Computed example of a mutant assay.
Amino acid sequence: MELYTYSAVKPNGETVSLENYKGKVLLIVNTASKCGFTPQFDGLQQLYEKYHKDGLEILGFPSDQFMNQEFDNNEEIMQFCKVNYGVTFPMFSKTDVKGEDAHPLFKFLTKEKKGIIGSEVKWNFTKFLIDRDGQVIDRYAPQTKPEKIENDIKRLL
């Protein structure tokens, strides 16, 4: 239940409680617009379109912590995602996902599911799969393409 105690800020400045996503299967992803993994937005959007009606929510958190691969402001980020990849799943404001200033949500996620080489997020497009009860079920490396996660998502739906 701890997952639902967090909130995050949308690009328009609105604070959204993760409690709004209670009962949904979540795929939480730290994203970047200028990364070699950026084309994964296509796969994420396809998953969203295919399974949103069944209870899947994909939550994107842009981060500029990995070689400055994100635009400076939220408007540019949202425009890029919409125009180039047709992103319609919820995106949030640019967020720190590692280090002392990491968003509390990412501190929670990395504590719940450590990576192969430690708990901290190591790169863009690290993905966390959460079940309908708010339990962190799995963590996927940046190289893991969204379509490789599809069967895990279907099991939770």
Score class of each variant (00 low, 15 high):
G118F: 07
L44F: 12
I153F: 00
G23C: 04
Y85V: 06
G118L: 08
Y85F: 15
V16Q: 11
E70W: 01
R139Y: 01
L26C: 05
D101A: 15
Q45R: 03
L59P: 07
T15F: 08
A141Y: 14
F41S: 04
L56D: 04
N30E: 12
E112I: 01
F89H: 01
Q79R: 15
L26W: 01
G36H: 09
F108H: 13
F61K: 02
L18H: 01
N30K: 10
Q79H: 11
G55R: 03
L105V: 02
T5V: 08
F37P: 03
M78Y: 07
K122N: 06
H52E: 15
L156M: 09
K122V: 13
I117G: 10
Y6M: 04
F108I: 12
V136E: 03
L105G: 01
E70Y: 03
V9I: 13
L157Y: 03
D138K: 15
F92L: 08
G118D: 09
S93G: 14
K113C: 02
E147H: 11
L18R: 02
Q40H: 11
K10I: 09
K53I: 10
N84T: 10
V29A: 00
K122F: 09
F71K: 03
L44T: 00
V97R: 00
K50F: 05
K154C: 04
Q135F: 09
K107M: 07
E49D: 14
S63K: 02
P90C: 08
P90N: 14
A141I: 12
A102P: 01
D101E: 15
Q69D: 12
E70V: 04
R155S: 15
V29W: 00
P90T: 15
T5D: 10
Q65G: 10
K145S: 11
G60I: 02
K145F: 11
F128V: 09
F61Q: 00
L44Y: 04
P11V: 04
D42A: 10
V121T: 10
G36F: 06
D64A: 14
F71D: 01
S17T: 08
I28A: 06
Y21L: 00
P39G: 05
S7Y: 04
L109F: 04
F108E: 11
S119M: 11
C35P: 07
V121L: 11
D72Y: 10
V136D: 08
I116W: 12
E150W: 11
F125Y: 06
L105R: 00
D101S: 14
K22Q: 13
F41V: 02
